[in-house]
Design a protein around this nucleic acid. Structure first.
Lengths: 121, 121
DNA sequence: TAATTCAGTATACAAAAGTATAGCGATATA
DNA sequence: TATATCGCTATACTTTTGTATACTGAATTA
């Protein structure tokens, strides 16, 4: 992609693109989504396991964010009807592909730190 | 990068990486940063121009967010000591490279929409 | 029988983010 | 002289986001 888009480029940017970028940003929104995704990256976990994994998260927040991530197709909630029922949370296939995005974020962040703050933070 | 990292991979992830990713996320944080960056993408602008460009933003928010973006090395504030002084805001070189990140976000968002919601939103 | 675990929910509250509205000092224009 | 523009700041308020704490019902363990 060009560094500076022309005005024509900008104006022809379809609404679908804006929505898609927004979706991606939503995946990381708030204080807890990143930690939760990180916790599920290695493998699927149960509610209490995730809670133990993430210091200071309250069950209220964990519950809320898991629902949010599920609604956004990032996390899958799997119920095993054993007795007692056990519930597992896992990342979707789509979520695993987020690594491409995170890689680019890492890349930009590193170069930005180097070129802009030059070891000042 | 691999889809599923090993536990060793995860544990060896340096703190610097976490910070770098965080920096990148901060650039897009909140309701107005994306529109502001978008507004400056085509060319530099003055305070009131940006305000006219972004519907419903209040001067308080614009001022706050511009300061924030400046502190984060994304926007540069240039003062011309003409009479009266005019102030222009422009993206830094580093900020222009954000297009790489946004591209990936777009890519993921589009595939995610297609594979997950199949034209349901 | 009593305490513990699981997978959460309910309620109240505090803090952060965003909005609404008015105003300022300096200049410029009618 | 009166009004408008520029680049903001100040104050008060609302909304959203996150925290603290307690609790639930079903099952399990001591």
């Amino acid at each position: 992609m060009k560094l500076k888009p022309s005005l024509k480029d900008v104006k022809s940017c379809p609404m679908q693109y804006v929505l898609a970028i927004n979706d991606t940003l939503n995946v990381f929104n708030g204080k807890w989504k990143m930690p939760i995704i990180g916790s599920l990256l290695f493998d699927k976990k149960r509610f209490t396991e995730i809670q133990r994994n993430i210091p200071n998260i309250t069950p209220r927040m964990l519950s809320k964010e898991l629902k949010d991530l599920e609604a956004n197709g990032v996390v899958r909630r799997v119920v095993y009807d054993s007795i007692p029922v056990s519930v597992e949370y896992e990342l979707t296939e789509s979520a695993l592909l987020l690594s491409d995005v995170v890689d680019k974020m890492l890349e930009w962040g590193l170069q930005h730190r180097k070129s802009t703050f030059n070891s000042k933070r």
